[in-house]
């Protein structure tokens, strides 16, 4: 039982982090806080992928010298690669989200969701 738990406790912690992000998206009123909650979910997914690439007793996926050890001596390079690009793309798309929020604030003078919706209804 205990060995089973140690194999899976990382997944459970990651799912807690993801649920925190979900709660932030659903329960907060401020659009900026919703964007930050989206980033929390993004971080949870990144950690999940990195967790899939781990092997017991492995080293970083870089050859030091040209001789190759066994395959089990190196961590899986594929999740590292995918998440490396995902982190940078996440920052860039967060920039786009912040730009949209900048325009919303300039137009309506607030970032609270209910106030923005009220203003939008009264405009049309």
């Amino acid at each position: 039982m205990l060995t089973t738990a140690t194999g899976y406790v990382n997944y459970w912690l990651i799912s807690i982090l993801m649920l925190v992000g979900f709660y932030g998206i659903i329960a907060t009123e401020n659009l900026l806080k919703k964007l930050m909650a989206l980033n929390v979910i993004s971080v949870a997914i990144i950690i999940f992928y990195l967790n899939l690439g781990q092997k017991a007793g492995s080293n970083v996926p870089v050859l030091f010298g040209e001789e190759l050890g066994t395959v089990a001596a190196y961590a899986n390079p594929l999740p590292h690669t995918l998440m490396l690009t995902a982190i940078v793309v996440g920052v860039a798309t967060t920039g786009v989200g912040l730009a949209l929020l900048y325009r919303i604030y300039n137009r309506y003078g607030t970032l609270e969701e209910t106030d923005v919706l009220k203003e939008m209804r009264s405009d049309s």
Binding site: V88, V91, A92, G95, L98, A99, Y102
Partner: peptide, 15 residues
């Protein structure tokens, strides 16, 4: 590409 994009996003967001 990455360096230029980061600088332009920062420069735009601080207005």
């Amino acid at each position: 590409g990455v360096a230029g994009t980061f600088i332009v996003i920062f420069n735009l967001l601080i207005g």
